[in-house]
Design a protein around this nucleic acid. Sequence first.
DNA 1: TAGATTGTTAATCGATTAACAATC
DNA 2: TAGATTGTTAATCGATTAACAATC
Lengths: 208, 208
Amino acid sequence: MFSNSDPIRRLSNYRRVLCKLRALGFERFVSDNLGGALDISPAQVRKDFADYGLTGNKKGGYDVRDLIEKLNKILGKNELQKIIVVGCGGMGRTLMGYNGFSGEGMKVVAGFDSNPSLIDPRAIIPIYDINDMPEYIQKEKIELAIMTVPESAASKVSEVLKGCHIKGILNFAPIMLKSSEECIIRNINIIHEMENIIYFARKIGNED
Amino acid sequence: MFSNSDPIRRLSNYRRVLCKLRALGFERFVSDNLGGALDISPAQVRKDFADYGLTGNKKGGYDVRDLIEKLNKILGKNELQKIIVVGCGGMGRTLMGYNGFSGEGMKVVAGFDSNPSLIDPRAIIPIYDINDMPEYIQKEKIELAIMTVPESAASKVSEVLKGCHIKGILNFAPIMLKSSEECIIRNINIIHEMENIIYFARKIGNED
DNA sequence: TAGATTGTTAATCGATTAACAATC
DNA sequence: TAGATTGTTAATCGATTAACAATC
């Protein structure tokens, strides 16, 4: 069911570039333009567009605004996406304070933690006791969560979230949670990203 | 030259699982074990091992400690990896304070920012003026950087880092920086990760 | 030994790219 | 119209998997 997440990643990148083109006043573009900006072949761009029903014009290329509109629909930009942050340590609070969500149709509506000293229901983005999370999720119809708990808590918390019928989790804990039919999970493992960089960086010569 | 980063990601995952096995007292494992823990086929595990010179024993499988040792070598775990954080806003400071690096052979040795009020050369992990960065990189032979600057500064800062012969960058700014022969770059785009999750989450039915 | 597992090759699968007819 | 670009199909490429001989 989950096939490949790469095409959707490319759609996100296409959209970002097109928003910039729009801001610069461009009205049309061709597959070659867009691909070039992202190191993607024009054939790949056209294939992706075909796969997701994005059409252009033989000759004139594609309409910037039209394409953004269609990408918005595909990527769920037309309805506000409510997100909860589970685990309000350093990373959790940083993400709660991240101001990049609001321009992208996303909003962190609450945080949850087990540490009483972090709980603050009166804050602009309230932080509640994690025991109150299931009720909140149900009442507010939350479908998306960002998990920023310590590794020790990660499996348990992910089970609770799944039990609450959360549909999507962005997991920052250093443990590979697997997606299922009921819940799509993406893992961000900063240590592994650094290991990857280190592996390839070590292959770069020292002769400068 | 950069082929595919996926095999190395799998090696990171293998290593993490093996460290857990070791902690649990396991001495040996078979490709089936390891694959099962990560949703990877045993054939893929053996293929990866073959590709990176990791050998086992026909019959008895593989030795946990031996494999970890070999993976450590491949992933650069045997020498301390010094990292600088460029951009000391919320995300930058969170990463500077992240205590997961030290157990993994990595250390954030300094931060850099252009905002005078953030500069603090006396801190445990000092924060210096970004203008002093090139000198610091050269003197301390820094090869790795984490970029947590605003989008508006991202291209410029990445150019400066490349100019300083930094070999690897983990970029959190919402702009797709491309790797080159001299500098390997990995981009983490939280908005795009959420868009990906939202796309697939929306395909999950509402009938519960 | 018999059974189990590796290491490796060949087959399969899927994703990317090349090529080109359609057409604006 | 001539030239340029899409949309799509077929070819290519590379990664994953199946299968099995080697062997512990």
